[in-house]
Design a protein around this nucleic acid. Sequence first.
DNA 1: GGCCGGTTTTGATCCAGGTCAAAACCAGTG
DNA 2: CACTGGTTTTGACCTGGATCAAAACCGGCC
Lengths: 246, 246
Amino acid sequence: MPTQPCLTPVDFNKLQSVCSACSLRELCLPAGLDPEELAQVDQLVNRRQPVKRGDYLYRAGAALRSLYAIRTGFMKSSVLHEDGREQVAGFHMMGDLLGLDAISTGQHMCDTLALEDSEVCEIPFAVLERLSREIPSLQQHFHRIMSREIVRDYGVMLLLGSMRAEERLAAFLLNLSQRFAARGYSSLEFNLRMTREEIGSFLGLKLETISRVLSHFQDQGLIEVRNKRIRIASIDGLRALIGQQA
Amino acid sequence: MPTQPCLTPVDFNKLQSVCSACSLRELCLPAGLDPEELAQVDQLVNRRQPVKRGDYLYRAGAALRSLYAIRTGFMKSSVLHEDGREQVAGFHMMGDLLGLDAISTGQHMCDTLALEDSEVCEIPFAVLERLSREIPSLQQHFHRIMSREIVRDYGVMLLLGSMRAEERLAAFLLNLSQRFAARGYSSLEFNLRMTREEIGSFLGLKLETISRVLSHFQDQGLIEVRNKRIRIASIDGLRALIGQQA
DNA sequence: GGCCGGTTTTGATCCAGGTCAAAACCAGTG
DNA sequence: CACTGGTTTTGACCTGGATCAAAACCGGCC
């Protein structure tokens, strides 16, 4: 039996993105909770909290108290090497669940910063653990979310370890496009919330390379770029670049 | 408050490796289970299964039935791009828990292959979920393991996204060294179970580069290599390479 | 409006690591 | 033991993306 391809780069977050709202309730829970369970889950996620652009949601080293579901806004998570090099590990938007890295040691392992004014729901982790013992569908759901993050990470490794600059950027744009689509926004026209440098850090490239490849895509008629504004002119062209048939 | 470095490359598996045996019981569970709970957990992990070198433990696309804890042996997991490019996502040894990627969709997302004759404990996932509802310390432990994998993945991203070839290989060797040490083997002398090509795939480099950098390390007196046999001559020298003080 | 700091684009040049090729080596196997 | 196929090493050369530099652009603020 031949090995099957399992992870196309654009897949990273396919599943993640079906959750289009922020609270765990709207977001995620398979239907079928009884009213009391629903009330419990509601209570779990009822703390809201604004995070201003440029503020950290949490820093590496901080103690884990809560996980956070993004209600609105856009964030990045990054790990820091001791010499100051930063590696962006992911960009997060509405519906994403943050802080999973902190469960391991009880301390956050990365910094998470708001790239625009955002709002998150705080989910006290102790309560989540307790409730997920009582509500099997919540437990299942939580496990799936953690696993999905692992799968996403494998996709990023594939991207960083074996794709060329153009492929990385094409995969990145397609991934963003798909996640916007899953949240009800346009999949073909959107703003990048992050700088070229942040994209570069995520993709293992330098900001100049990001800029050049974007310009190159534009010359080929694949996209139109104007600063942070992106319009995808040929999504099939981008897909072709990473070896995906339309 | 300044950002703290959170992830040194050698950290990847620091915590993972404190578990030096395979079954969840020996491995992992905080003491404090009552006898009946212990019996349940024992039952959970009691199925053993040999995996011969070159055999797959599971393939991408296969349905999730169980997770697997490695009792003895050595394995690699890899994701496949549709054009056939392979990205090794990790190497696994005694005590590691495999299959977490499959929880997300119920299908495995990577291939896992034995690099030497191995033995695993099969852990039926449905049973694990049920028991972890009943036994809080098991639940906690499982969550930590999943989170630890996410943290490890961030470390790999840092490595792939922002380190140069020598740094990557130094981090790789130090990581292996540490994991062997945590399992009671020599941290300074061991066999690589994988080929140069597999190391290269994991590190986002070509096999020739791996070979050259190893030779270069040898010339510098940092290690002695003879085929798959590695002796670390100056662990501090390797640490210095990735900007870690001894 | 004009100024200012951060961001983006573009060009010229460089180099780390890839590619191609060949030889050496090594572990099985008959 | 010699043969065989996979692995590793090493050399010569090439190239994709990094680096360095400068100009253009853009959004916020006075």
